[in-house]
């Protein structure tokens, strides 16, 4: 269907460019289709116009054809109407197919400015992580948006923790497709002492556990201490 829409868009584009078709011609065409094939849906003047826009956005289809076909038409509408630059459109096309976003999620991610966030601020990785797993950079973000928790400001760490667990599905979507939930308050034994990790995930692409520590305050260097302590403990095992 995407191919058909693209081809119609191409046809309309050429008609408009060379034969001087105008908006009214497209409206007449839509009316004609509606009259001839009343059961046929999706060929309103507005949608025909969108097909033309679709073709003009991706004139060189060969490069993106598999990506284009994987998304439903309504997801394309969100991407087309709200992202202007070609790089931005391609970014959302790739992310939406890779992450298997729902149409609603496509709209949300565009609203959240994921593209801008990814370009302006890459994630902050430790030197050790860069050396051990250089590809980790593409699986994390610098800023995670948790607006779906509807948390008041300020909130406690327990509130944050609890609502993340209650909205685990959406949190997983925000983290990325490859994250799998392992546990909460995950026990770690060091020496004779028991500690608990806030949240534990597994990343399929990186094939490693990801321990998440939550802080409802701004970053302080000592926060890293505790996390490093757990990580060292695991590596030593």
């Amino acid at each position: 269907m995407i191919d058909l829409y693209w081809a119609i868009g191409q046809h309309l584009h050429h008609k408009i460019e060379s034969d001087g078709w105008a908006k009214s011609t497209v409206m007449q065409l839509a009316a004609y289709i509606a009259q001839r094939e009343p059961a046929l849906r999706g060929f309103s003047a507005q949608n025909l116009w969108r097909m033309r826009q679709f073709f003009e956005a991706y004139p060189a289809k060969a490069k993106l054809s598999t990506l284009l076909r994987e998304l439903p038409w309504s997801a394309h509408q969100h991407i087309l109407s709200r992202s202007k630059q070609p790089e931005e459109r391609e970014f959302y096309l790739r992310m939406a197919t890779q992450q298997r976003w729902s149409v609603r999620e496509v709209a949300r991610q565009i609203d959240s400015g994921l593209f801008e966030r990814a370009v302006i601020s890459p994630p902050k990785l430790s030197t050790a992580l860069r050396e051990m797993q250089p590809q980790a950079e593409q699986h994390f973000k610098d800023l995670y948006l948790l607006e779906f928790l509807a948390l008041p400001d300020p909130h406690s760490e327990a509130d944050l923790h609890r609502s993340l667990l209650m909205n685990l599905g959406r949190f997983l979507t925000e983290l990325g497709r490859d994250f799998c939930y392992v546990g909460s308050e995950y026990p770690v034994q060091v020496g004779g002492q028991d500690f608990a990790l806030d949240l534990l995930f597994f990343h399929r692409g990186l094939s490693c556990l990801v321990a998440i520590e939550l802080k409802v305050t701004a970053f302080e260097p000592e926060h890293l201490g505790k996390l490093n302590f757990y990580l060292e403990r695991w590596t030593a095992m």
Partner: peptide, 19 residues
């Protein structure tokens, strides 16, 4: 802090409102 960390760690921020 991260340049001195010997552990594979990263620091990210969260926001409770859409930007």
């Amino acid at each position: 802090a991260l340049s001195r960390s010997l552990s594979p760690a990263l620091v990210a921020e969260y926001q409770t409102r859409l930007p």
